[in-house]
């Protein structure tokens, strides 16, 4: 079914995220960071324990319908929130770097050494 395509997209998105992180542009690195999160969330939703044709609601269960895995959804819900929090922190870092050193090029920053 669509499993191969899912895995392929996750792999490509992950590669894109890593590539962005490795480049010099800090703003794109931040975006790459967010893409990594998206790839992981996509992985989670694809890997749920079972698939179903209905949303996980009690009314659907009582009607005897096959629902999707609610636990993995709760997990992604948490993951999205936390990744958004860290993403805003990353944006804060980029912002402060640009203010302090007047650059968004990571090649201008070698302050880690001193």
């Amino acid at each position: 079914m669509t499993e191969v395509l899912f895995a392929l997209s996750i792999g490509i998105l992950f590669g894109i995220g890593v590539f962005q992180l490795l480049r010099r542009d800090l703003i794109k690195a931040a975006i790459g960071f967010a893409i990594l999160f998206s790839a992981i969330n996509l992985f989670f939703v694809a890997v749920g324990a079972f698939e179903g044709d209905f949303a996980p609601y009690v009314s659907n269960v009582e009607a005897g319908r096959q629902t999707s895995d609610p636990l993995i959804q709760a997990l992604i819900l948490t993951a999205i929130v936390v990744s958004f929090g860290s993403f805003s922190l990353v944006l804060g870092f980029v912002n402060i770097i640009s203010r302090r050193y007047d650059t968004v090029d990571s090649n201008d920053l070698n302050k880690l050494k001193h």
Partner: peptide
Amino acid sequence: IGLAVFVFSLNALQNRPDRHSIA
């Protein structure tokens, strides 16, 4: 790294347990 993630996800996706979940 992307390739490794691809192969890993494929493994995970194709070997899902069948409805044995705490869910």
